[in-house]
Computed example of a mutant assay.
Amino acid sequence: MPQATPPMLRMLNVLLLPGARTRKDPDAAFEKLLAEAQRGHRPLGAADVAAVEPLRLLLRAHAANPDLSPFGWTTVQSGIRDRLRNRVVIRDIQARHPEVREQPVPEPVFVVGLPRTGTTFTYNVIARSPGTRGPLLWEMLNLGLPVEDPAERERIAERTTKRLSFMDRLSPDWSQIHPLIATSEEEDFFLRDHSELHSSAATVPEYRRYLAGADLTDDFLLLRDALQVLSFGQEPQRWILKHPANLWRMPEIQRAFPDARFVWTHRAPGKALASGCSMSEALRNMHYKPGTVDLAAIGAEWLAILSEGVDRALSQRDQLEDGTLVDVSYNDLVEEPSKVMRGVFKSLGMTWTDADEANLATARDRPHHKGHRYTLERYGLDEFQVAAAFAGYKIPSVLP
């Protein structure tokens, strides 16, 4: 049964209807977004202007989607504007403070794996260890040099929390699917331009075709630049990053971060696939016109995205040097979390401390999406299709 559209979302779609006319000329809309992002800053150079062209392609793909609502069109423009602004802010700071390019980013760790495979749990335990850190959501959404004043940091975080609370009012399910907490570590996707997960909110086949053959090294170089900005002038800490689609981008990550390490969490892919479909359904209910969300289409799209991504990752892992990648079994993590995480720390050259044991206990007490249920069948899928699509993916046995 289609989800009822919340009254606030219906009202927003009416109010934003006049602005939706700009989708008739997405190139003009993109030029306006680029001009807005550069206002008050140094304009981007020719190399960066060329580098953001795929974002123009993403906007065109959204504009061509007949099911996208006025609110959806407004939201996807906002997301592209944020990414253009990030690049502008980074280049502006690099021009004013050339030494920012020398800020160390030592041996970053990328936690990779499909959704619902223990990535968030693993990420939080590593990122909260003494001497490491993950990018906080409020600082990614307000990219700039470190904010030294604690009171100012708190004000920015509170302002970001109010902005994020809007999502919960538009989708009652969203806080159960992917709660966004301004003061918590979040995915590095907010600091980069590209990911297959742009398909979550709306189908964008032209953009997905671009990504299939794209080399995203520049995207991860931009991430490195952003991390240097966020930590400029501070004692270097080991950055811990996470995003599902990073799983099949390990060569590009290593070109940007030659000393990067990877922690790959594994679980039978059915749960991951159903979870991704559920997230996409919730987002499309916000971004699409009422009654136009196609659940079977979501299932087919996510089956392709995740299975093709895992196939790429399996071929890429053979290219990694020994010791670069650490495997984690979700089942092992559930059964013996302390043993597993101690092993991960040892493989990463990190020392397990009492603080880490406390962080582990906190992570285990975290709410686990209570009330959020999802099945493959809802999206026209079954275990046989999943098994066939992921036939080459064998879950490694890690613990003795």
Rank of each mutant, 00 (worst) to 15 (best):
A151I: 08
D173H: 11
V100M: 03
L137V: 04
L33F: 04
E158N: 11
G113W: 00
V125T: 02
A355D: 15
E36C: 12
M11K: 12
V111W: 02
H194R: 14
A355P: 06
S329I: 09
H41A: 13
W138F: 13
T132C: 11
E383V: 09
F30M: 03
S171C: 14
M140D: 00
Q237T: 11
R128L: 09
D259N: 15
R101W: 10
P106D: 14
W352E: 06
Q228Y: 00
T132Q: 12
Q38G: 09
S200N: 10
D225W: 01
P18T: 10
T117N: 08
E31A: 15
A182K: 04
E281Q: 14
P251F: 14
Y288V: 04
G131H: 10
L222Q: 15
P18C: 11
G144H: 06
E235W: 07
L247E: 03
Y379V: 00
W302I: 02
K370L: 14
R312V: 08
N86S: 14
R317D: 02
P251M: 15
A226K: 03
V89D: 00
L12G: 02
L57M: 04
L211P: 01
L295S: 07
K162Q: 15
A201F: 09
I305H: 00
L247R: 03
D215C: 14
E308W: 05
V112T: 12
R364Q: 14
G213C: 10
S275D: 04
M341C: 04
S307H: 06
P290T: 09
L230G: 02
L399N: 02
P6L: 01
L314D: 07
R208I: 15
G72P: 04
L58M: 10
H178F: 04
E107F: 13
L136S: 06
R85D: 09
E301G: 07
K289C: 11
H287T: 13
R128W: 07
M11T: 14
P258A: 00
I80C: 03
A296P: 00
T161Y: 01
F190R: 08
R39G: 06
V88R: 02
V328Q: 07
M140G: 04
L59C: 02
D25L: 09
R261T: 02
A388M: 12
H266D: 07
G113A: 09
R10W: 07
L55A: 08
A297H: 01
A355C: 14
M11H: 15
V100A: 12
V49Q: 15
Q228C: 06
R116T: 10
V88E: 01
A297C: 04
E158S: 13
E154Y: 08
N142W: 12
S129Q: 12
A28Y: 13
A50F: 08
D354I: 13
A388W: 07
K242M: 05
E102Y: 10
V293Y: 02
D365F: 06
P205S: 07
E252I: 06
D27H: 12
P26Y: 05
T74S: 15
H243W: 05
R224I: 11
W73K: 01
L320V: 12
P104C: 11
N359S: 15
E206N: 10
P244E: 05
G131L: 07
T74C: 13
Q234L: 15
M8N: 10
L57F: 08
Q234P: 12
N86Q: 13
M250R: 06
N86E: 06
V293K: 00
F390S: 02
Y210S: 02
E158I: 01
N359G: 11
E235Q: 12
E185S: 15
D188T: 14
A61N: 08
Y207L: 02
